[in-house]
Design a protein around this nucleic acid. Structure first.
Lengths: 142, 142
DNA sequence: ATAATAAAAGATACGTTTGTCTTTTATTAT
DNA sequence: ATAATAAAAGACAAACGTATCTTTTATTAT
């Protein structure tokens, strides 16, 4: 698995919340979990983390819920880094501590371009783009 | 992390065993664990699995140990599949059950070429190639 | 002020991966 | 045959990721 389960939920939840935010609506945990097919309480924890890391915003109380700050340009890489950290893009594929550009492991050069593509793809992909696909192309999140 | 810890150990151990097999030597668990810097007993388990999956061979008793069948052309993908399965190359990056070629998730097209490169890189890379690098280029496994 | 709502926070539990230790089985050399 | 060696196998434990449930805190509407 490329991303952790938590990170998968985080992306799906964020996309769903972004869709709603586009209509100026806030969303509660229950609705998010229902929409993306994730365990409710666990999803709450993840969203909590995303709020702490400034990926999402939230409001307590009635009419409250999770939402995306208007005009906050958000990329997938931000979510991945917030939940899984940067290991996917930096840690040696063979788990070697000393592996580096100058002291490469036997797989270093082979993995490098792949890693760069991954990083690039996540970096240049705004959440909004996934959102527009969601409405138009019949994408689903569950 | 792209590969599990177990899989990292598996690859490093196999490369080390391949180096030794090139000199017609068998290697014991203790030496392997020492050479690649992995927990000994855990490494034993992993090697056991690799033997069961016909990646490696082993012999019990004195002069015994792990070795690579002579002329057995082995690719990294074989080790990855034996330990981590095929999920890295097939499972939806967003964890969506229904995601497929005809019903793609919002990230499907972006991830596809990356996945193919990964698969290709692991598939075309014979363990022997890592081995030659090991002796010549000062590669290390620990 | 009060009640209702909804996120935040904390405690607990489950499952998998990772890691350790001990016993058993097979093989070799003496 | 016996002792030594080394993998195989099994039992167990720690750590982490995943998941559930309960209590607390903040906010809103009445």
């Amino acid at each position: 698995m490329i991303l952790s389960k938590s990170c998968e939920y985080a992306i799906r939840a964020t996309v769903y919340i972004a869709v709603k935010s586009g209509k100026n609506e806030k969303v509660g945990i229950i609705e998010v979990a229902e929409a993306i097919g994730s365990p409710m309480h666990f999803t709450g924890k993840i969203l909590q983390t995303l709020v702490r890391k400034k990926i999402l915003s939230s409001a307590k109380g009635p009419t409250g819920g999770f939402y995306l700050e208007n005009g906050h340009l958000l990329f997938l890489i931000d979510i991945v880094r917030a939940i899984d950290g940067n290991g996917l893009f930096s840690a040696c594929v063979l788990g070697l501590e000393r592996c580096s550009e100058t002291q490469p492991c036997p797989m270093h050069e082979q993995v490098k371009p792949i890693r760069e593509m991954l990083l690039n793809e996540f970096s240049k992909k705004p959440v909004t783009e996934l959102v527009s696909g969601f409405g138009a192309n019949g994408y689903f999140l569950k």
